[in-house]
């Protein structure tokens, strides 16, 4: 039973089409990794759901309800939340305010400022500092925490480990494990294949805006996968 259904989606920036006729279905507690080269359309796929890329064709439904992608804020209201590439912490807000911003859609659930700070204690310690005063790894935790504040059914992470030290990556992987225990699904855009194995069950290889190959992470070392990733 799929929770998120992407049908025939074509999207891009301006007039340029970056992803073409893409179909993807996902159950509500699944963890999917999206891999592929730079420019393959991984981020564009995520950004299309949140109104930052232009949608040319196709539709997306969440829990059988049509998603209004152009509005941008509808995805969060329907149960998707994103930690975007580059983290996009608001410079004029404190750590706590950045978290509160994540709750803008008003969905209820287990995640609030306290439970997020239990997950990432550093955010609680530094809640009054400007969000951008945190280190890179802490900002990533803040971005994930902000997304959790929306109490999503599916959490989308765009390159969550980009530029982070191995120890910090371990912390984030552990936190993702805790988040999964709440029955939350994951979509992770990731360059590090090592990490894909640690957080995902299924993977999708994107190339030139199309799905080239997909399968379970158990088959990650197969020849077919290697061939797809080499393209």
């Amino acid at each position: 039973m799929s929770y998120l259904k992407i049908n025939n989606l074509s999207a891009g920036y301006g007039k340029a089409v970056v992803i073409r006729d893409l179909d993807l279905d996902m159950a509500k507690d699944e963890a999917i990794a999206i891999v592929g080269r730079n420019g393959a359309g991984k981020s564009t796929l995520l950004m299309a759901l949140f109104g930052k890329a232009t949608v040319f064709a196709g539709d997306v439904s969440v829990d059988d309800r049509q998603l209004n992608m152009a509005a941008g804020f509808d995805a969060t209201a329907k149960g998707l939340a994103v930690s975007p590439q580059g983290k996009l912490i608001l410079p004029n807000l404190t750590v706590k305010e950045n978290l509160l911003l994540g709750g803008a859609s008003g969905r209820n659930g287990v995640w609030d400022v306290n439970s997020v700070c239990d997950l990432f204690p550093i955010l609680g310690e530094r809640h009054n500092k400007p969000g951008v005063a945190l280190s890179g790894g802490q900002q990533q935790m803040l971005a994930i925490g902000r997304a959790l504040m929306a109490n999503p059914q599916i959490l989308l992470l765009d390159e969550p480990t980009e530029g982070l030290a191995p120890a910090v990556i371990d912390d984030i992987v552990d936190a993702l494990g805790v988040i999964r225990t709440q029955g939350i699904g994951l979509i992770v855009v990731e360059q590090h294949l090592n990490l894909v194995r640690r957080v995902a069950e299924r993977f999708v290889v994107l190339s030139k805006g199309e799905i080239l190959h997909q399968g379970s992470v158990d088959t990650f070392d197969s020849e077919a996968t290697k061939a797809a990733l080499a393209l």
Partner: peptide
């Protein structure tokens, strides 16, 4: 809360919308 949303939107409209602020 709504005041916080206003500050967020005026600094980074796209990010605020992505975080779920009903900008309309």
């Amino acid at each position: 809360r709504s005041g916080l949303h206003v500050r967020a939107v005026s600094a980074q409209p796209d990010t605020a919308r992505m975080a779920g602020v009903n900008t309309k």
